[in-house]
Design a protein around this nucleic acid. Structure first.
Lengths: 241, 241
DNA sequence: CGACGCCTTGAACGATGTCAACGTGCGTGG
DNA sequence: CCACGCACGTTGACATCGTTCAAGGCGTCG
């Protein structure tokens, strides 16, 4: 088939990697089939439950991972327990901070998450040998920086209503890119409490804003998690764009 | 002198670069003296006034720069004029987004700023030839991402008092690294309005928090800009650490 | 059925924003 | 040299938004 012919070295691709998005849009796209094979020998897949801590705030990092599916939340906590989610990661993002002993954030599975992990040492050696790999990492890091700065605007200057609308738009576009551009329907990957920690609000305020959006017909909600957005433009208007 | 002997190829270093911090801590540290010479042929230094726009939010980038001295603020603005400063950059940071046509933020001189600029094309070619250069950029980008995420915690979860204390600590450590660890004295590089835009507050609230810190003896202020911090630990306590 | 987790709703409170007046330093022009 | 205007910062009074605390709803699982 034509599609397969375009996929260079498809026959050499390790079985584990054949259906993996990281090979196309993620960091593994920078690797030759030889290197992919070498890496796959050291890599292991696993699925984890929501709530599982993948990386601790000040624990040493031994493994790096590619996210195969699911949503991972990156958070920071203050001494008195106040918490802020500082980023969300989706497939096929790379998880872990190269060249850093500590990483300053906790990574926790928000949904069920499938990851493909490999030892720090193997990846760091490959980075040294493969400038293309480092380039991919730089690209992803630049994207994450853009996202972080966008979110700083949301945290610092938007009202509660705008924050909740911005969150829904973020999830609609990032976690479910298969949605159309004018309408969307999906399961929220996070609890009200998580959303509050992401938006710098309380659970109650988030709940009230959901209620208001529902009352105004901008969204429909069933089972607390299932969201339908009939017209995305109406939601964008509420997000401050 | 011993100091000079340690500086490899010192004699070949272009005159323009000899006293430049970017050659040590910044991206130019990744270059050989040959490359430095080549780059310096295309580079130009200039000093700009506070308020000068160095990069526009959606303007094409033609130049990259190293910051030689001064403070640059990166900001975002909403359609209705609400503004948020999403990052500060100091010498010897690299200014500009490689591999991005647009960059989504406005860069503006907060103080008088000296920069060393070179054409986008020259730098991007060098990145392709020099993995070390790309590595430096990745390192800086990772640092900026850490900073951004730290600030997200500040924006989302800290009180006005904690935000202002956090700001003072940030300036004391980043803009004036020569300060001692237990005491500090410096000129604030930004107006009350800028500080408010960085902290997600109003000018009035920032002013009141300054007044309170002064009343409590945590800081002393003269001429609105000159700040003395007698005991940095007392300020840290106020910042939520 | 009851208990539990998660979410929603209500009422009162408090931190921060808004609006307006005033202060201070500085440059400018009479 | 003084008077004035202007930019910037401070302070006060009041309004508002989001938080806090408390009660109750709803679905799930034992």
């Amino acid at each position: 088939m034509d599609i397969k012919r375009k996929d260079v070295h498809n026959s050499d691709t390790p079985v584990l990697c054949q259906a993996c998005e990281s090979r196309h849009r993620g960091v593994c796209g920078a690797l030759t089939s030889d290197q992919l094979l070498q890496l796959s020998k050291h890599s292991s897949r696993r699925a984890v439950e929501p709530g599982t801590e993948l990386i601790g705030e000040s624990t040493q990092i031994k493994n790096y991972s590619n996210i195969i599916s699911g949503v991972v939340k990156l958070s920071k906590m203050m001494a008195d327990g106040r918490q802020q989610i500082v980023g969300l990661q989706f497939a096929p993002d790379f998880l872990g901070r190269p060249f850093r002993k500590e990483n300053g954030v906790t990574a926790e599975a928000a949904t069920e998450v499938k990851v493909c992990s490999f030892p720090k040492t193997v990846i760091e050696r490959m980075i040294g040998e493969m400038p293309e790999l480092e380039h991919k990492l730089l690209e992803q890091t630049l994207d994450e920086l853009d996202e972080a700065r966008n979110w700083m605007l949301t945290l610092g200057r938007k009202t509660a209503g705008e924050k909740v609308a911005s969150y829904l738009l973020l999830i609609a576009t990032h976690a479910f890119p298969e949605n159309e551009t004018d309408t969307a329907e999906f399961e929220l990957p996070m609890s009200r409490m998580d959303i509050a920690d992401f938006l710098g609000l309380t659970m109650e305020t988030v709940s009230r804003q959901f209620t208001k959006l529902r009352a105004d017909g901008v969204i429909r909600i069933t089972n607390n998690r299932h969201v339908v957005i009939p017209e995305i433009t109406r939601l964008s208007d509420r997000a401050g764009f």
